[in-house]
Simulated assay, not measured.
Amino acid sequence: MDVERMLRNVDFLAGEEMAGRATGSPQSAALEDFLSERLEELGLVPVDMLGLSDFRQPFQVPADRCYLDRETRPDELVEACNILGMMRGETEDMVILTANYDGLGRDPESGQVYPGADYNASGVSAVLEAAAVLSSLEENPKKTLVFALLGGEECGGFGASALSEALEERGFRGRARIINLEGLGAGDGDYMDVWDLNYRPNRETVRALDDAAEAMGVTLELGGADPGTSAGTFFMYHIPAVTCDWSWFERSEHPDFHRLTDTPERMNRDGLLKATRVVTLAAWNLARS
């Protein structure tokens, strides 16, 4: 894995030109193009089992829920989308890696951009890196591997809901396992968290992550109740999903969560790399089983 490549993706997503990646903004639309092109470059294909003919899964979000730096009408809707690509397996059972790419836009008082480096450019960079590594292997998995970058999450979990509804409508609720990635470059911690919601169907995923962490020499800590991530939305649809993050020492508060200080310079590159390695190996082993 190439941590420098990962950090370049973090720099791009958290940069001034992305203006905080607010859902419905021109910057978000440009980012959707970038992410779609990247998945295509890696040789992934659209998830046609979910009725998609390209890498976009469109949905709408109320404009007043978004972090736009303009006036919105009460009944206004903006276009958003998830970006999905897959490595087709021998079966249509799915292992899905998810991370949200949207952000909080600009601070309304200061006009400063919320960079969102750790939340959640780190997760996006990890999904892209996992896709780059696994798509380069000369082996097809047994289960289909899906790489899903979610839009509209910071304004109310719309991307996770759209993906959940598509999985349910197409009969995949019992045939998909999700590993959600957030906050993979936090603080000065030295272990990886897995939040499993105390949900029995997540046990297979937790075992795969535990085995991968042991193989990589990474300490894994299991948490129960979800701390407010996309996995909580998937859980509402009874879709097995866990969230992985890198630890921070002050467990009650992430040092830069949803703050203007969440910049690439404060990323824990070692934690980002270790967590991405563990998640990628776990996803591959789940897909091969």
Results as ranks from 00 to 15, higher is better:
267 M>D: 01
32 E>A: 12
140 N>R: 14
181 L>H: 08
3 V>P: 06
151 G>Y: 04
81 C>S: 14
250 E>H: 03
239 I>G: 05
104 L>Q: 01
187 G>W: 11
174 G>Q: 11
92 E>S: 14
97 L>P: 03
98 T>K: 04
268 N>M: 04
57 Q>R: 05
30 A>Y: 01
245 D>M: 14
239 I>T: 12
54 D>N: 15
260 L>R: 00
82 N>H: 07
56 R>T: 09
105 G>M: 07
18 M>C: 14
24 G>E: 01
150 L>I: 05
252 S>D: 12
87 M>S: 06
55 F>Y: 14
134 L>G: 01
261 T>E: 14
82 N>L: 12
51 G>K: 04
209 L>Y: 04
68 L>V: 11
25 S>C: 03
260 L>Q: 01
144 T>S: 11
172 F>G: 03
207 R>T: 12
145 L>I: 13
274 K>C: 05
174 G>C: 02
73 R>A: 07
179 I>L: 10
285 N>H: 11
206 V>T: 11
124 V>M: 08
226 D>F: 04
77 L>M: 15
38 R>F: 09
159 G>Q: 08
269 R>S: 06
63 A>E: 04
62 P>L: 10
75 D>F: 06
163 L>T: 03
45 V>D: 02
45 V>W: 00
152 G>L: 04
203 R>C: 00
200 R>C: 00
215 A>M: 10
249 F>L: 14
9 N>F: 11
17 E>R: 14
10 V>A: 09
62 P>K: 11
88 R>G: 00
72 T>V: 15
261 T>C: 10
48 D>H: 13
222 L>E: 14
38 R>C: 02
213 A>T: 12
181 L>S: 03
113 V>T: 13
289 S>W: 06
136 S>W: 04
129 E>Q: 11
218 V>E: 12
203 R>I: 00
274 K>A: 15
263 T>G: 05
244 C>I: 15
149 L>D: 02
198 N>I: 05
237 Y>V: 01
83 I>T: 08
100 N>T: 08
218 V>F: 06
153 E>I: 08
146 V>R: 00
23 T>F: 10
158 F>L: 09
152 G>C: 06
155 C>H: 06
32 E>K: 09
200 R>M: 11
15 G>W: 09
76 E>R: 04
198 N>F: 10
270 D>F: 03
215 A>C: 12
102 D>K: 06
84 L>M: 07
44 L>A: 03
32 E>H: 01
115 P>W: 13
